[in-house]
Design a protein around this nucleic acid. Structure first.
Lengths: 173, 173
DNA sequence: CACGTTTTTCAGTAAATACTGAAAATTAAG
DNA sequence: CTTAATTTTCAGTATTTACTGAAAAACGTG
């Protein structure tokens, strides 16, 4: 292996390791983030066994995290002609990755929050004590804000990359 | 206790419990989210002992999570005249809460990611193999996007609530 | 359908994270 | 300085979450 290939391997290993560590900060588990990093920087789709070997993890672990990533839409499973095994490839387009993550976070974080806030605003409607009014108002304010953020997220996610960029540039200017 | 007060207590307990459960989905621990919910809906600042009693948690637990929330800027510790104990009150303004959370997430999630991406783009600069070029390009694309998102976050967070709302409304219209 | 290959499941275990409770440190007031 | 109130620390423990490895199921081929 020549010097350049060696250098690339080191950089890529670094990326995989660090991206995995970052995953913990986000709600994502380390292995899942590592697999994502590995496949985002893989020239070709990989099999489960290749992922297992590269990251030194068990089959069960590789399998469940690959499935999870496919469920998110961050990976696709592809079939190669004359091959029985599944291959996995990552979505590499940054705007696509962003919209997928935004949509998933909305589903898992925003929508449940909205449901709670709505219910609490509902049941505290019409309580006449000052404390009751304050609670109700606080729930409504939170509900309105989160609902608004949710709509924003949808709008931006459904934009074409170029349009979002143009709009954002205007915002930053 | 009359019917209305009872109803409010139930609604508030529900909110605290559910907000805590949601916390897990985010990277935040359950107790921290519960304390935040409790104080966001408290008519008056509370002491550590009151938080302990309300949530049935230990002193150590209450203490460390209160400190963490103060560090985030989501709680303030206030002194009452003639009282030795610390009281804690929550920031209740939704726009303030949003900017605090956005700033903290940026610091903990975006900035470390940027550092990694920048370093990996750096060290893979100039590798002449196709794989090296592809890796470098991917790192740059990610770095650019994340850097851009970071700037956007700053801009929006530093806006006045009214202005952000107005701008967003235009965006949604 | 029988057999090798690949995927999926899951009970048991390991690792990471959060919590308790009591002791130590700090603070304020006489 | 002494004492009592309060805050902080932290070793030990509990809980949650993630991982392993092997067995079972599903798949595809002759």
């Amino acid at each position: 292996m020549n010097a350049e290939t060696e250098k690339l391997k080191l950089a890529r290993d670094e990326f995989v390791a660090q991206w995995g560590a970052l995953g913990s900060q986000w709600g994502i588990n380390r292995t899942m983030a590592q697999i994502h990093a590995l496949l985002m920087t893989a020239p070709e789709p990989l099999t489960t066994d290749e992922v297992m070997e590269e990251l030194e993890i068990s089959r069960g672990n590789a399998h469940s995290n690959l499935k999870e990533l496919v469920a998110w839409g961050l990976l696709r499973s592809v079939v190669k002609k004359g091959e029985r095994r599944d291959f996995f490839e990552a979505e590499k387009d940054v705007w696509q990755i962003f919209t997928i993550v935004a949509r998933e976070r909305k589903r898992r974080e925003i929508e449940p929050a909205l449901a709670i806030l709505h219910k609490c605003a509902e049941v505290s409607e019409g309580i006449e004590t000052p404390e009751g009014k304050a609670f109700h108002d606080q729930m409504r304010a939170l509900e309105d804000f989160v609902g608004f953020a949710s709509k924003m997220s949808d709008r931006i996610s459904s934009m074409k990359h170029g349009f979002a960029l143009q709009l954002a540039t205007k915002l930053l200017g």
